[in-house]
């Protein structure tokens, strides 16, 4: 296992300041319990998510380079993002800045022009799940668990961009590309690329039971097209929810505010249409960890979830 560091720059992303407040609050709780320290990235800006990169290439490079520069200013060489979209965007910028010197120089010149310190070194970005697993791990979770999630059947939904693509997330190194230097290197701490298991391991250590959820654990939820291509998103979310329900899950654990919002929104719409087997509620994995660490449902803001996981958790005596 490689080492990421106990104290990192924390890039929450726009979503966690508003609609996904529960994730932010519960992440801080879980990090505190696991003995990890988050240093809030002051005055960050949006990463551009999956949308801006279709409009402007250099623009997204700049947006992410600005965040990297802020992290360097606070003295960090590691950024941790709790959102798949944010970690993807930062890792994408990292990839292009590292492999293309011309882009790196141009970005630095533009950063200086925009009143931001240029990058002396490119900070590495990790997803928060990877950080939790590497720096704390299931053993630590087990030690800290005061109220095990006994009897809770969880479907762990990782979403697309947690381990994909390996060029950016560095989850897998195979013979890709003709240029030896540009080939991606596998990160020691990276999760398995096609069968991620970090969330399964953490929640199992907290006492929950994992249900079989492949291959829907990394199936797309519609992502950037949640609003612009409703039919496709609806079908994808239906497939995800039905697989979870039919495999006996009580709850879906998520690790991305975008996936979470998409699942909850389309769950509601599917239920309005009377589609069977879609009524599985969703909760962030950090909320479930928080419950296991002995915090109350109100502490981890379970009421913020539109899909309302409280009845299920109350039935099992967990909340």
């Amino acid at each position: 296992m490689g080492v990421i560091g106990k104290r990192v720059a924390y890039y929450p992303g726009c979503s966690l300041e508003g609609a996904a407040r529960a994730y932010d609050v519960s992440t801080k709780i879980a990090a505190k319990e696991l003995g990890l320290e988050l240093d809030y990235l002051e005055d960050y800006n949006c990463c551009g998510a999956m949308e801006s990169k279709n409009v402007t290439f250099m623009g997204t490079m700049l947006m992410n380079a600005r965040n990297m520069s802020l992290a360097r200013k606070q003295g960090h060489s590691v950024i941790v993002a709790p959102c798949n979209g944010c970690s993807f965007s930062l890792q994408r910028a990292e990839y292009f800045l590292e492999t293309d010197k011309a882009i790196f120089d141009k970005v630095n010149a533009l950063l200086r022009e925009g009143g931001v310190d240029p990058l002396d070194q490119i900070p590495q970005t990790y997803h928060i799940l990877e950080w939790f697993y590497t720096e704390a791990g299931p053993q630590k979770v087990k030690e800290k668990t005061r109220k095990p999630l006994r009897g809770l059947k969880v479907a762990n939904y990782y979403g697309c961009l947690y381990t994909r693509p390996h060029f950016y997330a560095r989850t897998y190194a195979h013979a890709g590309g003709q240029d030896e230097e540009a080939r991606p290197r596998r990160r020691e701490t990276a999760d398995d690329d096609e069968h991620p298991y970090y969330m399964n391991a953490l929640l199992e250590a907290a006492g929950a039971t994992n249900v079989e959820f492949e291959p829907m654990h990394t199936q797309c939820c519609g992502g950037p097209h949640s609003l612009s291509d409703e039919m496709v998103s609806e079908k994808f979310v239906m497939m995800i929810l039905q697989t979870a329900k039919r495999n006996g899950a009580d709850i879906i654990a998520t690790e991305c505010p975008l996936c979470h919002a998409s699942l909850e929104m389309y769950r509601h719409r599917l239920m309005m249409k009377g589609v069977p087997d879609v009524d599985v509620p969703a909760a962030y994995f950090t909320q479930l960890l928080g419950l296991a660490f002995g915090y109350s449902a109100n502490d981890v803001k379970l009421k913020d979830n539109l899909s309302d996981p409280l009845p299920v958790l109350k039935r099992l005596g967990l909340a």
Partner: peptide
Amino acid sequence: RCVSCHKCTHRCPKG
């Protein structure tokens, strides 16, 4: 219609 799930990029044997 691409939903940017990056399965294609991830699995491409030629990079």
